[in-house]
Design a protein around this nucleic acid. Sequence first.
DNA 1: GTATTTTTCCGAAACGTTTCGGGTGGCAAT
DNA 2: ATTGCCACCCGAAACGTTTCGGAAAAATAC
Lengths: 343, 343
Amino acid sequence: MTTLKDLSRHLNLSVTQVSRALNDHADVSEETRRRVKEAAIKLKYQPNVAARKLVSGRSGIVGLVLPNMPKMAEAPIFVQTVGGMSAHFARRRMQFVLNIADESEPILEIYRRLISGGSLDGFVLLEPVRDDPRIEFLQSQKVPFVVHGRDREEPDYPYFDIDNFGVAHRLTRYLTDQGHRRIAFLNGREGLTFVEARREGYRAALGEAGLRYDPHLHLCADMEEGFGIISAVRLFSENPRPPTAVIAGNLRIAKGLYDALRAMHLSVPQDVSVVAHDDLLPDIKANAFDPPLTTTQSALELSWEPLAEFLAGAVANVPAAALQKLGELRFVERESVAPPQQP
Amino acid sequence: MTTLKDLSRHLNLSVTQVSRALNDHADVSEETRRRVKEAAIKLKYQPNVAARKLVSGRSGIVGLVLPNMPKMAEAPIFVQTVGGMSAHFARRRMQFVLNIADESEPILEIYRRLISGGSLDGFVLLEPVRDDPRIEFLQSQKVPFVVHGRDREEPDYPYFDIDNFGVAHRLTRYLTDQGHRRIAFLNGREGLTFVEARREGYRAALGEAGLRYDPHLHLCADMEEGFGIISAVRLFSENPRPPTAVIAGNLRIAKGLYDALRAMHLSVPQDVSVVAHDDLLPDIKANAFDPPLTTTQSALELSWEPLAEFLAGAVANVPAAALQKLGELRFVERESVAPPQQP
DNA sequence: GTATTTTTCCGAAACGTTTCGGGTGGCAAT
DNA sequence: ATTGCCACCCGAAACGTTTCGGAAAAATAC
């Protein structure tokens, strides 16, 4: 293994100067810098991360801590997430480590262990809840992190999110504009901030249309196909006043919903209008629905690069304000909505 | 952050002795050891991994390098694998890092980069091919690793595998015992050693029954549902002499096969007998098939623990012979096989 | 009583890097 | 000729741990 000392001997330079040359410091001549870099490549020099970390405090390793094994239904998202992050961090010459918690160990303990050993530079946080304890903890420990989402409206930490209020608002508004007055919303698991944001967007759009928010029409659960199926039954077969339109939180829910509606001989959009939000996952396509589904869309896949970039920035002490971004959102009109039938 | 020096000051001991006490060396009195360990807990001492690594050469980090982003069809296996490994290494207080290769960078370059930086202690290798270049490379570099599978019959490195020869042999033998004489085998991607082992098991069992191996009946492809579908068509609708039984390499292939046979109005087991190997993945069950599928089974899920254990062992210089294991294999008879129809 | 071993401890060096403070020598300004 | 400045370079210290060789204290043997 080549070290700085080897290089310095080989070049008749001091270790100091070699280090400075490789790190592009100011006071090293152009000529020397070139020589050094060439030699480094020729001798396959790779800096020893441990040594570097010891003095600089940075290890180039960031982590993702998951509270539990992902369920099978979440597999595609898990692949996207872990794969995407890993790839983008690798591109930045950073290591990405995955840590799946034992249920036995409290999650904050895991963070504590990982940071106090000094092995990790920072973390990626997924699925924040309101006033997320992880965020509070990491902030109190002054450990860099980036959040996929937000746990409050205007955070002072790095994040990448989409306008979830806008998602729900837009979808709801589109339906009220067509004359719908009873609109159900199949949202996500309660407590998650993006679910709350969507609820508010939904509620706001209802208000603007002069409609009142009916809690019976706002359902919360894990965003799986089964949720769509069960909700369809609950909304349309056990309900004296069923909705005329349904908003699905993602395509998986919408899929279940479509299937169940078909089984109940309700047709889209004649009997029920359906819209959804589409994360553009590769395994399920909105225009492969029958009829093609009207959606808001924003590619989940585009999250990983900014997340990696922002975490790298945070580790390098870039101020948080420069490390915040909202993803693009598009509205795509297809054929799953019609005006409500007159009763 | 508490360091050894802090502890030593606090205890009126030398740094040396504190270190030795914590690492359970011989020449430290019982009394001192106790005092030191108590203080360590009280002051929340966590050894700095970077410093430790610098002198010991171990980082406690192991890695998995994947040649490319997993395809969606492989998502459940990916989740199992990555999740399982990560969890088991975490239990051993080791970090597990995932590295998804850019197509641009040759895979051995990635290994080279990761080991010469000195950041990783060892690797987990998946899906070995015969005379796998990764194995040769890592062996030549004297880097510890463990293989899920084998790249030769009796390797001198740590591995966990199942008896793939046995899998194919058993399934084939079961069919020949029932009188089948034309048996197709839907195997995996060519080049993988487990695929070759299965081919040999198949071929051997055929031989024992006095049948000759017909290459037209041994098909190789990625083990996805589509492979089962396409093979069904090829074997049964374009073939003057179709097989009377089919062996599927896994349940996903079997699923495609079942679906396609049904579409072609061929019934299992009256028209075609089917058997398969079952990795006991959570998203697909052999007895949920109609009719329930006769299988060999061995839980993929049970691989992760021995793999983690063996890699940890390899890093600690345990001889390879003690780090090799074959997984359990069971044969489960269900209702997907009948004697062949007389022509 | 001295000689020898055993137990328990410690100082110092080492791992490979970054960085601090302080050099040189050359050149322009005074 | 002195001063100041600049571009370039270097030695040494530091990061936190482990380990080597040796030393003091205690226990045992003669």
